Structures are given as C-alpha cells and as structure tokens.
Amino acid sequence: MPHPPAHRARTAIIGTGAIAHAHAEALRVLADRAELVAVVDVDVDRARAFAAQFGAATVYENAGQLLAHERLDLVHVCTPPQTHAPLAIQTLHAGVPVLVEKPTALSLREMDEIIAASDATRVPALTVFQHRFGAAAQRLRGLVAQGALGRPLVATCETLWHRTADYFDLPWRGRWDIEGGGPTMGHGIHQFDLLLAVLGPWRRVSAFAARQVLPTDTEDVSTAVVEFTSGALATVVNSIVSPRETSRLRFDFEYASVEVEHLYGYTDADWRFTPAAGHEALAALWEGPAAAHPSGHRDQLAAILDALADGRVPAVDAHEARRTLEFAAATYASAFRGEIVHAGDIAGSHPFASSMHGGAVPWQPHKEIVR
C-alpha cells in the first residue's frame, strides 16, 4: 500500500506547454505527497501564468538556474523532444532524479548517453509511459507473470488517431531533427510500450511506413509485424490519419483473450476478459478493485513517489525505456531499408543508432534530412 513519505517531495517542471499541464494536474491530485515548487520556461510570461495556475512559488528562465537554487526530489522534463536528453543529463549530474516525457531521446545513441549519466551518478532517469500503471494493466501483467493465462500466442496493437495539417503549425512537430519521428515516436509509442511490457522481449520486426497526406518530414503511418522471444506474434499500427480515433490492444493467450479500447486513457470499463472454453474460472482472477479515473500521469507519479520513498529505482527507468525506443528504431530501419530487423541489430555505427531516419527516408532525399 502507498504510504506517506517523511516529507512532501519537492518537484519542478521544465517546459510549461500542453503536456506540462498533465504533470501539474497529477501533482495537484497527489498534493499530500508532492509539491510543485518551481517551473522553468524560456517564455517567462507563460511560465508565470503556469506557476500562478498550479501554485509554484518560483519561476526560472533555464534549468541551470533551477538546479543551482532549488533543493529538489524530482524534475519533470516537458520540453520539445530535441531538448530531452541534454536536460535529463544536466539534471542527473545535479543529483536529481528526472522524469522525461516521451520520447526520452531522439536516438538510441542519445538514450545511451542518458543511461551512462544515470549509471555514473546513480540517479534514476525515468520515462513517462503511464499506461503501464493503470489498475487493469497492472493486473494483466501480474497474471502473465504468474503464467495463469498460458502462453501468449497473438496480439494486436493499434493507435489510430487523427491530426490535421494545422496540428503541425508548431515548428517542432513533424520534423526528424526536433521530434525524432512521426506517430511511431510521438503517438503510438504509448500503446506499443504497454504491448512490450506485457509480452516481454521481442526477437524481430518487419515494418512499413508512409507519408500519406500530412505536410511533415516524418511518416504519418507505420505498420509492423513482430515476433517475440516467447514465440508470440503481433501487429502494430501507428497512425495519425484515421478519422475515427481509437487506441486498441488485444492479447490472445492459450486460456483467455484480454482486450482494451480507449483513446487517451483507459478505465477498467474499457477492458474485456474472455476465458477460453474450459477455463471460465479464470474470470475470477481478472476481477479487481475498479479504477475510478483513466490511466494517466497520476498513476505513474504515485508509483514513482512510492519507489523513491522506499529507496527503490522507480519504473520506467532508462534501461527499460531503451527497449521501447529500440523497437521504434527497428520499425523505421525495417520500413526504410525493406528488411527484417532483429533485436540488438541497431548498435555501434549502425545509421539508425544515431537517428530514427537513418538517412534513408524514401520520400526525402538524404541531403534534406537534418541530423
């Protein structure tokens, strides 16, 4: 059971754009356990408005000022993706645990730099993968770990969202050099992170990607077929060109099918558990306390606070987040090279280790690609 810490955790948010509000709202819900003491943004007026809205006492113009003047237990990085790795590393070297919005880094090479800094300082670097922490997902992972559902056989993972051209008016969206990729990196990553968390290590992937209609440098849809080390097979679709929006996951095990359909966060009501014939008694194992709120930042933040209070490394740490980022890199490498990619292939001087595009985007000549 969660327990009150000896003191309220002192937290700060770097970047006060849209996603920062989800972090601040989570902190407000958990106000008995954590307080937002400071915010940072290059747009000082926006930072002041954000601080006033969420009760932060101090505003800073940059991370250096924040880390020099505040005693902190956790820093939330909510800036555009190209700044994630430098800010995470700076925070780690200041001795403060850091929670980074997805994607943690723009490449596996950057991710390895974060891991190296975390290992050297012995300070946790964490990634926001909040869908792992909803009550139903936790229950499912427990049943899988126990072997109660039998061997995993097949799964589907779909992020079918819709974005119009004006969504990309922000200068950092849809660009390899700033966002790192399209829906594979910025949208579907939450769903396939949960897929990987349930099914475990993947062995190989074969993928396609396309820029169908949107005015981006990156893809607006990708599809992949994945084989896991368990032998399970899965399909993964990441789209931002789908007018009827939904997020779906389905897992078929030997003894049951487990499904969820939601959009940006699920409750227990969004899940369906179907036991196979002769295994109806499993339905009782699925029953559990119903979560009243959708899966989101508050669940992961509560788990982080529990772990920090207990002296444990919280989830999802940089080593684990790297496996999800590696899957994204493998999706791009397979799609752009037209080949099957195995886990561990993308390493060293591999072109997709230093960037998600690997200099091989079919619709964009290499000379036009930044990075």
Rank of each mutant, 00 (worst) to 15 (best):
D32N: 13
A302G: 13
A18H: 15
S206K: 06
R8E: 09
L106T: 04
H190D: 09
P243M: 08
V313F: 04
A63F: 05
D166T: 15
A47N: 01
V39W: 05
L233N: 14
F54K: 04
H366M: 07
L308I: 08
T104Y: 13
A22F: 14
T127L: 11
R141L: 09
H350N: 08
E101V: 08
H187I: 14
V221W: 07
A136C: 13
A6E: 15
V75L: 07
Q138H: 10
S118F: 03
W176A: 06
S118A: 14
A148C: 05
A277N: 08
D73P: 10
R8D: 06
C78D: 06
H76E: 09
H7F: 09
V96H: 06
G134Q: 02
H21W: 10
D299P: 00
T156K: 00
P81W: 02
Q146N: 12
I369Q: 15
R10P: 03
D306T: 08
Y266V: 10
P152W: 00
F251K: 00
G186C: 13
D73S: 12
V75T: 01
D193M: 03
I115V: 09
S247P: 04
E110S: 07
H187M: 14
L67W: 04
W161I: 11
E219V: 04
C78S: 13
R337A: 07
R322S: 05
L285A: 12
T184D: 01
P314K: 12
P289G: 11
V341N: 00
D317R: 05
E245R: 11
H7L: 10
L170H: 15
F129D: 12
A328V: 09
E227C: 10
Y255Q: 13
L74W: 06
V29H: 12
A20Q: 01
V370T: 14
G142I: 04
R28D: 13
L285E: 13
E287T: 14
I240C: 10
F251I: 03
P215C: 12
P275Q: 09
L126C: 10
A290E: 13
G338A: 01
V205L: 08
V100S: 10
W176T: 08
R139T: 11
P275I: 06
A125H: 05
T216N: 10
A125G: 13
A116I: 01
R48S: 10
V260E: 05
L67N: 04
